[in-house]
Design a protein around this nucleic acid. Sequence first.
DNA 1: TGACAGGTACATG
DNA 2: CATGTACCTGTC
Length: 279
Amino acid sequence: MIRQTLKDFDIRQIAESGQCFRLRPVSGSETASEPNANDTYSLTAWGEYLEISQEGTEVSFSCTEEEFESRWKSYFDLETDYGGFKQAIDPEDFYLQEAARIGGGIRILRQELWETIVTFIISQQNNIPRIRKCVDALCREFGEERESFRKEAYRVFPAPEALAGTSEERLRELGLGYRAPYLVKTARMVCEGAVDLEALPGLDCEKAREELLKLCGVGVKVADCICLFALHHIEAFPVDTHIKAMLKRYPEGFPFERYQGFAGVLQQYAFYKETRQWQ
DNA sequence: TGACAGGTACATG
DNA sequence: CATGTACCTGTC
């Protein structure tokens, strides 16, 4: 167990930020009276199972020192100063100030590339509960089973080969709808090497985006999400229906120049604010 | 009932 | 290049 005192970190906000679909409350950890008093969340990522508990700024991770240093510190982007991003926000920009105040505990995660590609193909014209349901179904059907530190079984995210080997019909049965053929095609493209996932982390944001756009079911918005949430190009700025509405608040245009290099962080604050009514 | 959910592929002008 | 439309499925 690792204990840390963390600023600008809120595991609940991260779980509800819509960038990760396998981070969720451990059942029974939330109390109605004080929902934020002691939140415990479970996460399956990078083949591992982790639990995270938070009380105020005290955060504990159910892993060894070595695992924390080699994986989770980076995964949760704990070595980046998010306070600096917030301070850079125009003091007169009340919208962004408010968004950063509400969602200031969000971190941009470093998720697995293949998993992020699949989950964001699924995310199109979809809602969070159903995305989670689809992702769970994929893991249950095609993911390798492992045992957690609690001696309970969990499933890792299925490899490209597993999805390349299935059929559109099978994926439709799992509730993927019209995204089923996208997934099968994209998995096959990856297995055939039409897009080299190994090479993507070495590319800059623009080149990576260009490569990702070759995949079936990946358009500009999904490609930007993958750049932001997996490749950690925090300058990527995915524009969806909510963010489009937000951009209309800036008749002169959103001040991208001011936030060059980290606009994606602000996108997440804004997205979180815009989608609060879901909870 | 119909619109909407973190869009994209595909067909046209 | 810009615009228009169909598309699974669950929920309000």
